[in-house]
Design a binder for these strands. Structure first.
Lengths: 143, 143
DNA sequence: TTACCTGCAAAGGGTTTGCACTTTG
DNA sequence: CAAAGTGCAAACCCTTTGCAGGTAA
C-alpha cells in the first residue's frame, strides 16, 4: 500500500489516519473532476459504507486548512473541491451543458502579484471563475 | 423627486414601482459599500419599517436579472450586492480587519477576452475575488 | 379591476455542531 | 489510556416559496 502524498502530509502534520480519511483522500486523488461534498460522500461510502457526510465535511475542512485541496464556487452553486494542482488554474462553467473548462492565464497570476506588491497585500486565496456558454452551446444545441 | 436611473430602468422594463422597491434602490444607490441582504434589509426598514427580508431578496433578484446590480461572494461568505459600476472592478477582502479593497486590473479583462476568443466562449459572469491580509494587518495590528 | 407585489411564516439546501461512542497512536 | 475522530440527528445560516391579503397601473 503506497502512501499517497496527501496521506503523508496529513500524517506529518499530526492528524490521525483513519479509514474514513484515507477513503476521502483516495477519492479526491483519483478523481479528475471537481467534486462537491455530496458526490465525495457518495463515492466514499462505496468503500466505507458507514462514513457520514459530516465526516466528509470535517475531512475537507482539515485538508483545506492545510492547503492540500482548494474549494471553488463554480458558477453560482455550492462548494466544489479539488486537490491543489501544480499549476494554478481557473474554471469556466457552461450554463448550457454544465461542463467545466479549466484554463490557465499567467496574466492573471501576474496581475495578482503586481497588485499585492503595489498595495502591500498578502494574498491568501484567489477565487476566479467564469460562467457563460461554451462553443457547442453557443452554436445552438446542447453539448 | 428626481427619478433615479435604477427606478427609471425598472419602470421601463414593466415592473411596478412600489414603496419597498424604491427604498431598496435608494439604499443601493446611496451606499458605497457592498451590502449583503441583511444589511440592505436593516437599512431599508429604517425608511419602510414593514418591509420584509423576502422582499429585499425578491427585489435584488429582479435587479440582478436586469443586470442593474451585481452579486459578489467576497471571501468565502454569503452574497453581497453593489450597483453595477461603469468601470468593472474586483474585490480584495482582508481576513484581519474585514475591509474590502476595490481594484481594477485591465490585464484581467484582457485575459478573459483572449480566453473567450481562443476557446469560442461567451462569458456571462466573472467572479474574481481575493482574500488575504492588508498592509495594516500584516504589520501586526488590526486596522 | 386585476395582475403584480407584499408580509409572514414555513420550507429548503448546504454546512456545522453537540454528544456519546469508537478508534488511533 | 487519553486524545482525536466518528456517526447521528438536530441546529444553523442564508435564501426561497406558498399563500392570503394589499396595491400600482
Amino acid at each position: 500500500m503506497k502512501p499517497s502524498p496527501l496521506i503523508t502530509a496529513l500524517q506529518a502534520s499530526g492528524h490521525r489516519i483513519t479509514r474514513q480519511r484515507r477513503v476521502v483522500l483516495e477519492v479526491l486523488e483519483e478523481s479528475q473532476e471537481h467534486l462537491d461534498a455530496e458526490s465525495l460522500y457518495q463515492k466514499a461510502r462505496q468503500r466505507a459504507p458507514r462514513i457520514s457526510l459530516a465526516t466528509v465535511y470535517r475531512t475537507v475542512a482539515v485538508l483545506k486548512q492545510m492547503g492540500l485541496i482548494a474549494e471553488y464556487s463554480l458558477g453560482e452553486e455550492h462548494g466544489h473541491f479539488e486537490t491543489v494542482p501544480e499549476t494554478p488554474h481557473y474554471h469556466f462553467t457552461c450554463i448550457g451543458c454544465g461542463q467545466v473548462v479549466e484554463f490557465d492565464t499567467p496574466q492573471v497570476a501576474v496581475a495578482i502579484q503586481e497588485l499585492a506588491e503595489r498595495e502591500g497585500l498578502e494574498i491568501c486565496t484567489v477565487q476566479f471563475s467564469l460562467t457563460g456558454y461554451c462553443a457547442c452551446c453557443r452554436a445552438g444545441r446542447g453539448r
